[in-house]
Amino acid sequence: MDPFVVLVLCLSCLLLLSIWRQSSGRGKLPPGPTPLPVIGNILQIDIKDVSKSLTNLSKIYGPVFTLYFGLERMVVLHGYEVVKEALIDLGEEFSGRGHFPLAERANRGFGIVFSNGKRWKEIRRFSLMTLRNFGMGKRSIEDRVQEEARCLVEELRKTKASPCDPTFILGCAPCNVICSIIFQKRFDYKDQQFLNLMEKLNENIRIVSTPWIQICNNFPTIIDYFPGTHNKLLKNLAFMESDILEKVKEHQESMDINNPRDFIDCFLIKMEKEKQNQQSEFTIENLVITAADLLGAGTETTSTTLRYALLLLLKHPEVTAKVQEEIERVIGRNRSPCMQDRGHMPYTDAVVHEVQRYIDLIPTSLPHAVTCDVKFRNYLIPKGTTILTSLTSVLHDNKEFPNPEMFDPRHFLDEGGNFKKSNYFMPFSAGKRICVGEGLARMELFLFLTFILQNFNLKSLIDPKDLDTTPVVNGFASVPPFYQLCFIPV
């Protein structure tokens, strides 16, 4: 058959498939802009700032609406009420993970971030239990974070109060905490193996944040037939998995079943207990991918939040002064901060919360999916439909947070200066898919920041009023603009 005829037939089939998918069930789905064949609503979305586009569309179609990214149908949730109703009140029905062709290629359905069903539930339950087990290797997770915080302070001392970009050092600290939990080992910041790991993690975040990856996920045929950065992403992930597998083999040879040292040991012990169960989800494949998931999810998000926190503290020296006064009063100079201190430091706690609220790190979270046909607000959402959640619409709700575009710790303080919780605080998402490392991340943010401010004054290279804190939105995360500062020993 003539190649031209084959091409026309293929394009015609794709067009018909697109029209059929977009028209099927439209009477039951939430409203939304009319999609174009094949490309859907992509032309109506700013790929570099999806969150802003969703906010604009919500003003037209309401808090629940339908979009098509290519052939992929998505239902968008915008605003606290619908997000709570879906992710919390109907948590089980909305607990699936959205379709990610690239991740599915890399992870093969294993791990904790992109798995679904029984596998996801069992691996998540085990990971939560293990991360909360403060007795691994007779050292609590808090001990590990405190140790890394001391190392971080010593690295900052080496800058000798000269101007520096904190990106690298602030990236090393949370990565080392995860390494300590998974591998029972922290690395020197100049260790070549550690630097290679950091390089792969950072490069992957840069790649994932590009519009090209959005295109690959919406048109998965590209993955096999086109060159691009997605190939580098898959190569980096394969490198990390190979490295983790080597460490798993080392653990198998040296493990003491009665004295687990780290996450890998705990997983291997669980595998041993379930070795007679042919349906067990505790396999080497799941261990390797879960460890890679924890490394990827637990490094860049925390380091970016820390980097943004220091920029905001530079911009608002009056806030920094209040935090340091609270540190001096509650902790002093002669001991290290600990998590028990947080309950006695409402202002510092409010500042950490406000940093996370203000920066809105992951504006749309990772997409969910419905696990069955769901009736939601008089609409029928078919099983498997991807759910896109606007966390921006919750964290920047102007009824809950007056002047949401302003950095103001009073958003989390009552009139008496006591810490005030808010149900709208969802930087880790909400419901059954809430970030498994939430507790660890909150511990790291509090301890790293208090250790830094206990030991250093922060000095800006320019007038604080002239510092730009506008986030650089890159399609996946909101990151701070480049800046330098000086760490002046107190």
Rank of each mutant, 00 (worst) to 15 (best):
401 F>T: 01
40 G>I: 00
181 I>P: 00
326 E>P: 00
266 C>D: 12
2 D>F: 09
47 I>F: 15
295 L>V: 10
150 R>Y: 12
253 E>G: 10
443 M>R: 13
135 G>Q: 15
206 R>F: 06
113 V>I: 12
338 C>T: 15
444 E>L: 00
415 E>A: 13
138 K>E: 14
174 P>I: 08
42 I>A: 12
164 C>R: 06
116 N>H: 09
78 H>T: 11
472 V>A: 12
480 P>R: 05
401 F>M: 02
462 I>Y: 12
151 C>W: 12
471 P>L: 05
297 A>G: 10
137 G>D: 12
238 A>R: 06
128 L>M: 14
348 T>D: 01
152 L>R: 01
240 M>H: 04
422 S>M: 02
77 L>V: 07
316 H>R: 07
222 I>M: 08
264 I>P: 00
222 I>R: 05
337 P>V: 07
321 A>W: 10
328 E>Y: 10
131 L>I: 12
408 D>I: 03
474 N>P: 08
243 D>C: 15
377 R>G: 08
407 F>V: 00
168 F>T: 12
397 D>G: 03
110 F>L: 12
459 K>R: 13
9 L>F: 11
480 P>G: 06
190 K>H: 11
121 K>R: 12
103 A>P: 06
45 I>H: 05
128 L>S: 12
485 L>H: 01
232 K>S: 07
375 K>Q: 12
49 D>R: 11
262 D>G: 08
384 G>W: 04
103 A>K: 10
233 L>H: 08
383 K>R: 11
86 A>S: 07
107 N>Y: 09
329 R>I: 11
294 L>R: 01
209 S>C: 14
317 P>H: 07
211 P>I: 10
261 R>W: 03
214 Q>S: 15
93 E>A: 13
286 N>S: 10
408 D>M: 05
331 I>G: 01
117 G>I: 02
152 L>C: 04
255 M>I: 14
445 L>A: 05
118 K>F: 14
109 G>E: 06
75 V>E: 00
256 D>R: 06
159 T>P: 03
113 V>H: 05
459 K>E: 15
188 D>P: 09
2 D>E: 14
110 F>N: 11
115 S>D: 03
329 R>Y: 10
54 L>G: 02
476 F>G: 07
69 F>H: 08
182 I>E: 02
288 V>N: 05
485 L>D: 01
69 F>C: 09
316 H>C: 05
379 Y>I: 02
183 F>R: 03
431 G>A: 02
291 A>G: 08
120 W>H: 10
83 V>N: 05
263 F>E: 00
6 V>P: 10
362 I>N: 10
330 V>T: 10
186 R>W: 07
433 R>I: 03
309 A>K: 00
412 F>E: 00
327 I>H: 00
114 F>E: 04
293 D>Y: 04
98 G>L: 05
76 V>L: 02
319 V>S: 06
271 M>L: 08
69 F>T: 07
384 G>Y: 05
317 P>E: 09
250 E>T: 09
97 R>F: 03
304 T>G: 10
457 N>R: 10
373 D>F: 00
327 I>G: 01
428 F>A: 00
